[in-house]
Design a protein around this nucleic acid. Structure first.
Lengths: 187, 187
DNA sequence: ACTTTTATTGTACAACTGTTCATTAAATTT
DNA sequence: AAATTTAATGAACAGTTGTACAATAAAAGT
């Protein structure tokens, strides 16, 4: 009655470990399927049984990161941030601490030779976090499509994260918080 | 005294035409160098003499698009937009008309399997356009790093463009203008 | 027109990709 | 414990990649 065949679990694990090992020495886009399989001691055909690209394997880590992002966002503060930028509260700002924690992964996700997929997944996640807070007073505001407002605000925050990444995360997460608060107060 | 060897001009032209032809039928990431050379009737080795990847060839179109973006942004209005979102004026909004005009290219640039490079180039361009207007009163505001403010605002606008792309550009550029104005007025 | 320069070609090579298929072996089911 | 299911393997194939080098031919310079 075991849901998944043990063999599958083992090979996936071996592939995961192999990818992590390789990522220490070279960028994601320079890692070949053959290389991963050689290290994992898994037949190359078996790789294709589970994934189509190296990226699909990486995406499985990505989901864990997105889970942490969601909990990072929700846990520390219980009160609700409004999407309306001027009234965005500090809970939103937990995002930067999460990024700091996972900066090694964000360095991969945001590197220029990697496909946009991960960026879109990240954007979607941030959008969901923001709109989760907005939905309550959605009907009040009405006139502006929630969609546009969420896309605007979520990507704005990612803009700060991109800038941070391009500075090789040299600032502290708290500095990012300050900048965001200043930008929002300015409006 | 001709700066560039005519042979180079010819082969580059042939490669450009070949890429455009292929792009009508398949996505950028599915186009191989061999395929381009076959159609262009150019030796594959010659391709590597000028470019390293298919993307480098595509990037040459990209530069033209960025030029149009800059002129689209500057030409229609002469008065200056401030970066401060609440006071952003309609000239910024010319961006959406530019995107509408080049939507076929933006569909490529923003497709999920394409590397982030183009997105970063686009972001950089929008940032430059925005900061060009801000630099004047930069010394007045002082406290907030221009960098963070520009990254925030520029990527926010790209957020709207991403949303628009994901809706397959079904709205008119003017609708995007309205949404942006509403979002900015809200703050 | 002739010479020089250099872009392009053709060929070759090792490695990777994506796919197929029969065989083997490891799990699961009874 | 035996039978059944199915994941993993190994081998093979055509195609792509990136690189190298000598031969060729097309521009540019004189």
């Amino acid at each position: 009655m075991g849901q998944i065949d043990l063999r599958v679990v083992k090979t996936k694990e071996a592939l995961h470990i192999a990818l992590l090992t390789l990522l220490k020495n070279k960028p994601l886009e320079a890692i070949s399927i053959s290389e991963i399989c050689r290290i994992a001691k898994v037949n190359r055909g078996t790789f294709y049984l589970h994934y189509a690209q190296v990226g699909d394997l990486f995406e499985e880590y990505f989901k864990e990161i997105m889970d942490d992002l969601a909990t990072s966002y929700h846990e520390p503060y219980r009160y609700v941030a409004k999407l309306n930028p001027r009234e965005l509260n500090p809970s939103t700002i937990r995002i930067f601490h999460h990024v700091e924690k996972y900066k090694d992964y964000y360095r991969i996700i945001l590197s220029k030779n990697v496909p946009l997929t991960y960026y879109y997944l990240l954007l979607e996640e941030v959008k969901n976090l923001l709109t989760g807070n907005l939905e309550k007073d959605y009907r009040k505001e009405g006139e502006i499509d929630l969609k546009w407002q969420a896309s605007y605000a979520a990507n704005a925050i990612l803009g700060l994260i991109i800038q941070w990444y391009q500075d090789d995360f040299e600032q502290k997460a708290n500095y990012l918080n300050e900048q965001l608060v200043k930008i929002l107060r300015l409006t």
